[in-house]
Design a protein around this nucleic acid. Structure first.
Length: 920
RNA sequence: GCCCAGAUGGCGGAAUUGGUAGACGCGCUGGUCUCAAACACCAGUGGGGUAAAACCUGUGCCGGUUCGAUCCCGGCUCUGGGUACCA
């Protein structure tokens, strides 16, 4: 009988759905295992062959874990709010809910064809009110909590107001905005509005004025990770800096915990490193410099990691946005400073990046005093100092900082080295090693000793203190968009007030025009009656990462309408054991999710401190594009090998009309009207196309759709082939070369069970050779799957099946177990054969075969030998040799004599027909 | 610039991490089957060399450690990813 994958796959996909084979519930008799994929944004383009790579890997792992006796939670859902649907809505008037729904059904049918073992009863969609109710709920919790640095966790705002009422805020150590110290009396005397203004500085979800990435073309604010090289990641539009009042999440409060807890995670080092850099912890000190400006004196605080270089300070620099700029500018310099600041403001972020090496700046006209040396230092303004980091002001040490050095050279400021023996005539000496000089009390110390010594000194003198700074900034949480979660917040006399939890979800109102309102307000301003109890509701919506930050929790208990997740479900499923997804989320989603989880952990809603225990980043599958070469100003195309003889333009050509880089000329003429009358210059009678490995995208005509592969070869072949392509974590181009080999393997496998058209297995006892093949495979598959080395597993299957066909093995004892081993990879064919083998239940309920080392043991003999010596080499010897002969061979080997040193040879291991290994 | 990962046949990639480099698959060559083709099966396939062997050479480049290096150390070149003045 033929291997009819079309029928088989349809049959089992229907069976799994009807029998609800993959639905799970909490089951205390079995250990749990939670395997999660990063859920997709359902884009209009549908899935391409790159998407399922990670899904196939996680599916294999899930199915493997089920065989191993685990109760496996393996859910899927959709990250359904987002910009593209809204952009599309603006262009076409089609409501985003409709396009999203359509895209989801397309995704679903594509995924179903690949035979994933998801528990679809747990599907979540971030745009579903029943789901975003809990996104809004979490936001309210953040709004109603503050972060206590003393106890290192979030606490209710109600506790804070109680403390304020009793003792003011002197003893409160919180992660907060700028607040002045007040007493209990002052607090009680305050108006409700001022109290609320103060509380806003403490809330974990707070509203504040910040400089944001504003994208005028999209009409919205973007997070740092949504901007790349000054352009929006979605759409590629220019982004500029703008001051705006925005909702923010106090992620920075959790910086230290986010950093420390990385150690507890089973993630790759490079990913952890990325997060570490993103969090960017630096230890240093804040120093106070007195600045004189026209007879007035101000204290300017700076942050430095190099307190040791205090004697090398030759000037100070403020960020153009710094609040000190105004008061520190002298009358004489006023005009110059204003001109400079206007010029800086005009520049977009993009231009700033493009001009990074260009030195600009202006002198304020005022002078600071070095708090240690008493020296007079000019105060400058320059855009290379960022307002958002540290205090927005620095002490410049040109001898030991390359940026200060460039500035000093440009403006001709003095450069004073304070480390012995360094040459600063050409460049600064930034390294943190050497011995201090020209530095008073620090002279003679090494840099590493001098840093703490200098900080101790300034702390004693009261001119500074130790300080840790983080690069990680609070997450900007509002978007001026329609297609996102509405904020459960209304404004009562201008005071932001929480919508009560009972009123959640606060549903997104339906509108028909999705552009920003004429007033410049977000689209929600167009909604009729967007109010709560007559008060206006917040008009911006939440960003994409809101809905994706806690979705893994919702899968545990997706239909619960009284809690995000019940305590019972959370106690059982705990957190994600294995998370598979792309690296592109390293600094966005994976930071926000960890933050969100830690916050809920502080409040006692979840039992684990970290959301994702083990994380695997699958590589990207790139497209392989083909090109044709049009001779300039003609409709003649020249084959790739001859193109250098002409002046040509490279044009992307649809890979569907190219086979093995040979162009199907007829198809090309029909492809687009303009090519109807195309002429060709061939080589050897063929038109050879050029190629390149690029991102898979519609515009490059290189998208390979998984549906096509499923039709042509079947899902099992697709699954196996995607794994066979190479290591999971590596990026690689999609190339169908070789897919035949994998498909051939499956037919060969099928043939083991259907040797002559009919299903037939023998009940005879298996031979030693057959058992050896099987048990080697059992061990190999297990260790490979656990090490996520799926490509080598596929090879192992091929070898085993080849060996078994060579042995003409059709014993049930072997074949029964072989099909179980293969089932995680190619579940459809496995189920079909499993049924033929006479089993009533799905193969998912089978048990992974027990490995028996006795079947695979090599005939290894150990020969104790009588001489003393330290040897470590292998030599080729025949198995047939006896002990004496081996000893003689070893002793007579020239290497033995040459490298005999003192030591003991413990044994000689002989592997038949192979090598002897002399171990000491 | 800085941080991380990588470089192995014509191609995708293996190699128990210091012990026969190139598993497995693709491609290619030859053969069997066939009127022929496809499918299938068998054999060969890093390069040089030979009638065949022997032999020589070979894991981006240069050097080192070692009896022995794809693997460890030092220095480079290139590719991919992250980041962008973070004081």
């Amino acid at each position: 009988m033929e291997y009819n994958f079309v029928e088989i796959e349809k049959k089992w996909q229907r069976y799994w759905a009807e029998k609800k084979v993959f639905e799970v519930r909490t089951d205390s008799t079995k250990p749990k295992y939670y395997v999660l994929d990063m859920f997709p944004y359902p884009s209009g383009a549908g899935l391409h062959v790159g998407h399922p790579l990670g899904y196939i890997a996680s599916d294999i792992y899930s199915r493997y874990k089920r065989l191993k006796g685990f109760n496996v939670l393996h859910p899927m859902g959709y990250d359904a709010f987002g910009l593209p649907a809204e952009q599309y809505a603006i262009q076409t008037g089609q409501h985003p809910a409709v396009t999203t729904e359509n895209n989801i059904s397309r995704y679903r049918s594509q995924m179903d064809k690949i035979g994933f073992s998801y528990d679809w009863s747990r599907e979540v969609r971030t745009c579903d009110p029943a789901y975003y109710k809990w996104t809004q709920w979490a936001f309210l919790q953040m709004f109603n909590h503050w972060y206590c640095n003393k106890c290192g966790k979030a606490r209710p705002i109600s506790e804070l107001t109680e403390i304020f009422g009793k003792e003011g805020n002197v003893n409160v150590d919180a992660a907060c905005g700028e607040v002045e110290v007040f007493t209990a009396e002052q607090w009680s005397a305050m108006s409700e509005e001022s109290r609320q203004r103060i509380l806003m500085q403490y809330r974990i979800a707070y509203q504040g004025e910040t400089s944001v990435n504003w994208c005028p073309k999209l009409g919205t604010v973007l997070a740092n990770d949504e901007v790349k090289e000054g352009l929006s990641v979605r759409g590629g539009y220019p982004v500029e800096q703008k001051k705006m009042k925005q909702w923010q999440l106090r992620v920075s409060a959790y910086a230290e915990r986010l950093l420390n807890d990385l150690e507890t995670l089973d993630w790759t080092d490079s990913l952890k490193e990325m997060q570490r850099n993103w969090i960017g912890k630096s230890q240093g000190a804040e120093l106070v410099f007195k600045v004189e400006c026209e007879n007035k004196s101000f204290d300017v605080t700076i942050f430095t990691t190099r307190a040791d270089t205090i004697y090398g300070v030759t000037f100070m620099v403020l960020a153009p946005e710094s609040e000190w700029v105004e008061s520190l500018t002298s009358t004489q310099q006023k005009q110059a400073v204003e001109d400079y600041i206007t010029a800086v403001k005009k520049k977009t972020e993009r231009e700033r990046i493009a001009e990074t090496h260009k030195v600009t700046g202006v002198f304020t006209g005022s002078y600071a005093v070095n708090p240690v040396t008493g020296e007079k230092l000019p105060v400058w303004i320059s855009e290379y100092v960022l307002s958002g980091y540290g205090t927005g002001a620095i002490m410049a040490v040109p001898a030991h900082d390359s940026r200060d050095y460039a500035f000093a050279k440009h403006f001709n400021l003095p450069i004073v080295p304070v480390i012995e023996g360094c040459d600063v005539s050409q460049e600064s000496f930034d390294a943190k090693d050497g011995i201090m000089c020209n530095s008073g009390f620090l002279n003679g110390l090494s840099v590493k000793e001098a840093i703490p010594a200098a900080i101790d000194y300034v702390e004693q003198k009261g001119i500074g203190k130790r300080k840790v700074n983080y690069r990680l900034r609070d997450a900007i949480f509002s978007r001026q968009r329609y297609w996102g979660e509405p904020f459960p917040v209304y404004f009562k006399e201008g005071v932001a007030t929480a919508v009560p939890e009972e009123s959640l979800p606060l549903e997104l109102p339906s509108i028909s025009d999705f552009r920003p309102a004429e007033s410049g307000e977000p689209p929600l301003a167009r909604a009729k009656d967007w109010t709560y109890n007559g008060y206006p509701l917040e008009k911006s919506t939440m960003p994409g990462f809101a809905g994706s930050s806690a979705y893994y929790l919702r899968y545990m208990d997706p239909h619960n309408d009284t809690a995000l997740v019940s305590k019972e479900a959370n106690d059982y499923w705990r957190n994600v054991d294995l998370y598979i997804g792309g690296t592109e989320h390293a600094t966005g989603h994976l930071i926000y999710s960890r933050f969100w989880n830690k916050f809920l952990y502080d409040l006692g809603y979840v039992c684990e401190n970290e959301p994702f225990k083990k994380l695997i980043n699958q590589g990207m599958i790139q497209g392989r594009s083909n090109f044709v070469y049009r001779i300039k100003n003609s409709n003649t195309f020249v084959s790739a090998g001859l193109k250098d003889q002409y002046e040509t333009t490279e044009i992307h050509v649809d890979i569907n009309i190219v086979h093995n880089d040979r162009l199907d000329i007829e198809a090309f003429r029909h492809w687009m009207k303009e090519y109807e009358s195309a002429e060709f210059i061939l080589e050897n009678g063929e038109y050879v196309c050029g190629y390149a490995v690029e991102k898979m995208s519609k515009s490059m005509f290189n998208v390979v759709n998984p549906d096509r592969i499923c039709e042509e070869y079947g899902a099992d072949t697709l699954r196996l082939y995607e794994m066979f392509l190479g290591p999971l974590e590596q990026s690689k181009p999609w190339d169908t070369k070789g897919i035949d080999g994998v498909h051939r393997f499956l037919r060969k496998f099928w043939k083991l069970y259907f040797p002559q058209d009919e299903f037939s297995v023998s009940e005879e006892k298996a031979t030693a050779a057959e058992l050896k093949v099987l048990h080697k495979l059992i061990a190999k598959v297990q260790s490979d799957i656990e090490g996520f080395s799926f490509n080598t597993t596929v090879s192992a299957f091929m070898i085993a099946v080849n060996d078994l066909s060579a042995l003409k093995c059709n014993k049930r004892e072997i074949l029964d177990q072989l099909v179980i081993l293969l089932s995680p990879f190619t579940p459809h064919i496995a189920e079909e054969i499993w049924e033929y083998l006479g089993h009533k239940e799905s193969i998912s309920f089978a048990h992974y075969p027990e490995y028996n080392a006795a079947y695979t043991a090599e005939d290894t003999f150990e020969y104790p030998v009588s001489f003393n010596g330290k040897l470590r080499f292998k030599m080729e010897l025949s198995r047939s040799l006896g002990k004496e002969e081996i000893e003689k061979a070893v002793l007579n080997d020239e290497r033995t004599e040459k490298y005999l040193v003192s030591g003991q040879v413990k044994k000689i291991i002989v592997v038949p027909g192979k090598i002897i290994n002399v171990v000491c």
